[in-house]
């Protein structure tokens, strides 16, 4: 089977810092791949090369086996790659609907923004993702961390993603909302999406992911199937930066 995504030998440096250093990862349809590592390991930078936020200094990206050139976030979106950024990337002064459709606004035949249709669509998807969400008319700066997160998630899910990147999607959430995100990930996985999940909670990784990639200092320590290793094996990889002996 051809992988949905293949990132080969990706490198990117900021000034003297090698944020990502010859890293290769891949992702199959219906698969969740966890990305783990300490803060500063290069996880966010790596996936930003896929989402179009950064351009890699070296390396290649293949989608469905085809080499692609992702120059910006528009290119990535055109390839059905959607991203939930660690920073959420919301315009705080705009309401939920404006954020959800930012860069892809719905317009009327005369070319003006179709506010009501965008709000209706936002209400529709929010009813599915976060039924308690009410603040459709407020700027998102007035929302709680969880509500903001659900806006960012809605934006990634709404546009029929095939490849979903989630950079610490539960960082701002309480236990109940975290559970909702976990269920959403499982549902999207069943629908055949490929998901890169950056997550610090090792239990969540063991539960949700098929494989885990561990990074340290910009380099890939190793890739493991989560059902072949224990929590402690993965923690060992994160801390020691070495692959455990028993995992091939």
């Amino acid at each position: 089977m051809t992988p949905l995504v293949e990132m080969r030998d990706i490198s990117i440096a900021f000034g003297g810092i090698k944020a990502v250093d010859h890293v290769s990862i891949d992702l199959y349809p219906g698969e969740v791949v966890g990305l783990l590592g300490h803060n500063g390991a290069g996880k966010s930078t790596l996936i930003k090369c896929l989402s179009g936020a950064y351009r890699a200094d070296a390396g290649e990206i293949y989608i469905d086996g085809q080499k692609v050139d992702i120059r910006n976030t528009r290119d990535a979106r055109a390839l059905n790659i959607e991203t939930i950024y660690q920073t959420l990337a919301l315009a705080d002064n705009l309401d939920a609907a404006s954020n959800l459709f930012l860069g892809r606004e719905l317009v009327t035949p005369s070319g003006l923004l179709d506010e009501s249709r965008m709000e209706a669509e936002t209400r529709r998807i929010m009813a599915r993702l976060n039924p308690n969400f009410r603040k459709f008319a407020d700027p998102v700066m007035a929302l709680s961390g969880g509500q903001r997160q659900s806006v960012a998630i809605a934006r990634a899910v709404y546009f029929n993603a095939r490849i979903l990147i989630m950079d610490e999607p539960t960082a701002a959430l309480g236990p109940q909302e975290t559970q909702m995100v976990a269920e959403l990930i499982q549902e999207l996985k069943r629908q055949g999406l490929g998901i890169f999940l950056i997550e610090h909670d090792i239990h969540a990784v063991m539960k949700l992911c098929d494989r885990a990639v561990v990074m340290k200092n910009g380099q890939r320590v190793g890739t493991v199937r989560v059902d072949e290793v224990t929590d402690d094996d993965i923690l060992g990889m994160i801390i020691m930066g070495k692959k455990p002996a028993q995992a091939a």
Partner: peptide, 23 residues
């Protein structure tokens, strides 16, 4: 009511978010 205007306000609210949205 236009994309242009929406992008002005989005950029002012969060320039990084605007950039990441392909503006």
């Amino acid at each position: 009511r236009t994309r242009f205007g929406r992008y002005i306000f989005a950029t002012g609210g969060n320039p990084d978010a605007a950039e990441l949205s392909g503006i």
